[in-house]
């Protein structure tokens, strides 16, 4: 195998003298085209391509930064809004309590007034009723006296006992007064 490789080498060596990278015939051509293509690449990259990529990266960075700022601003706004809501809720609570208190005192007053009025009416009616009862009672007692006198006269009449009207009435009176 190595014999074959060596044979190939020697056969080749006879055809070509120089080691290709050190063969000077192509040096001018290599340098010329290197200058042309490297220069062209440098020109294209530095003039057109790299500024554009840099611009894109910058835009991305600023857009991300802007978005973050916007998010922070909105977040702050949300916190403010939350605070405002809390404050208004607290205010509403206070107002409701106040209103309720006011209503309660008013109602209590009304109740007290009504109660006083009704009490007075009831007292007046009671007093009137008592006067009327007293009158009825006095009338009734008067009737009882006269009925008792009449009844006593009648009973004594049945027993054929004569008694003066004045005696009977005083006896009845004393009996009733005892009773």
């Amino acid at each position: 195998m190595f014999a074959i490789v060596l044979a190939a080498e020697s056969a080749h060596g006879a055809e070509k003298a120089a080691f290709p990278p050190f063969d000077p015939w192509h040096f001018p051509s290599q340098l010329f085209w290197l200058a042309v293509f490297f220069g062209f690449l440098y020109f294209a990259l530095s003039r057109f391509i790299l500024p554009k990529i840099g611009n894109t990266l910058e835009r991305r960075e600023s857009s991300i930064a802007g978005d973050l700022d916007e998010a922070a601003r909105l977040n702050e706004e949300a916190v403010e809004a939350q605070k405002a809501v809390e404050v208004s809720i607290a205010k509403a609570h206070a107002k409701a309590r106040e209103t309720a208190d006011k209503a309660r005192t008013k109602i209590d007053k009304n109740i007290a007034a009504e109660t006083a009025k009704v009490d007075a009416e009831v007292d007046a009616k009671l007093a009137e009723a008592e006067t009327r009862i007293e009158a009825f009672r006095t009338d009734a007692m008067k009737s009882v006296e006269s009925i008792a006198t009449d009844t006593t006269e009648a009973i004594l009449g049945k027993f054929s006992t004569k008694a003066g009207k004045a005696d009977i009435s005083s006896a009845v009176k004393s009996a009733l007064g005892e009773g």
Binding site: P28, S29, Q30, F37
Partner: peptide, 10 residues
């Protein structure tokens, strides 16, 4: 006087 032929390298 320089050979600047377009080669496979170029």
């Amino acid at each position: 006087g320089y050979d600047i032929s377009f080669t496979n390298a170029a």
